[in-house]
Amino acid sequence: MDFGIAGKTALVLGGSAGLGRAIAHALAAEGVHVAVAGRNTQAVEETCCCAWDKGVRCLPLTWDLSDPSQIEPNIARVEAELGPISILINNTGGPPPTTAQGQDPALWTAQFQAMVLSVITITDRVLPGMKAAGWGRIITSTSSGIEAPIPGLAISNALRASLVGWSKTLSREVAPDGITCNIIVPGRIGTDRIRFLDGKRAEASGRTQEDVTAEATRAIPMGRMGDPEEYGAVAAFLASRQAAYVTGSVVRVDGGLIPSI
């Protein structure tokens, strides 16, 4: 299927690895020129290597989302080198595992800047161009914790949930401009982040990481973790012309893991 987005420009935040890298590769496969942002310069360039192989332009950006001063120069560079941003993938790294109580307010503030305020500010910056074109896609990657809070991930549960309310509100505001806003929710996708969290749970419980992973996998109705490519494919569809009537939605890619309707 031709998604009708070849030649457009996408900005993928958190594209140096995992889900962000998978989304960048899926968009590049559709002929989208991609700017890939991440803190690790080498990892960002590795993501771009696959995109270059697909014959599209790819711009690696070393970008720390916790620093608001980097937003304007980086977006200006994308616009200058790749063109107006039509597709924005809001994807941020996960915070450290924490309980809900007893956390330093400075930690909450720092994570709010990196995970929430940066996303809102970047989106506001690219929206005028989308409105002028009468077309845009804003896709925000969150966590299954927005629907079924995950024990030990209090900051993630709270801050990612705030993005859901923001995205839904924004979707109604920009729908007349031909812009869609959707949330995409990963379950247990096979990434380094999941392996890291399983390792932390294993340490806390005195079990092996293999046991923790096997137990968590048994809770997935499909009986396996997802592949990052499967997640990237869903994001690419939400960016497509065929998804023009999908907005204000929360789309799960979880193998049936989340128990609620």
Rank of each mutant, 00 (worst) to 15 (best):
D177I: 01
A22V: 02
P151F: 07
A233C: 11
P95W: 09
F3L: 15
Y245E: 08
Q70M: 14
N157H: 07
N90L: 03
Q111V: 04
A132S: 12
L197R: 02
A100H: 01
V116Y: 03
G152M: 10
T217G: 00
T62L: 04
F3P: 00
T98K: 09
A37D: 04
E81F: 12
A110D: 11
L65C: 06
R193S: 08
T109C: 14
G206E: 11
G145C: 00
V185H: 09
R57P: 13
T41G: 14
L159A: 07
A10S: 11
G152C: 13
D198Q: 08
Q70D: 04
L170Q: 10
R252N: 08
V126D: 00
Q113I: 09
G206S: 11
H33D: 13
V36A: 11
N74Q: 03
L257R: 05
M225F: 12
V251D: 01
N91Y: 04
A22M: 02
I155F: 04
R160E: 07
D104G: 03
D227T: 11
T140G: 07
P128V: 09
F112K: 00
E215S: 09
R137G: 11
A106H: 02
A106Q: 09
E72F: 07
P228A: 12
A17M: 15
R172M: 10
I5N: 03
R77E: 10
R39P: 15
R125C: 07
G190I: 00
H25W: 13
G18Y: 06
L127Y: 08
A76S: 14
G129E: 06
G102Y: 09
R252F: 12
Y245C: 13
L59C: 02
A132V: 08
G187K: 11
V12S: 05
A235D: 00
R125D: 06
D227R: 15
A233T: 15
S260G: 11
G178I: 10
N91H: 09
V56A: 02
I261M: 13
R57W: 08
M225R: 15
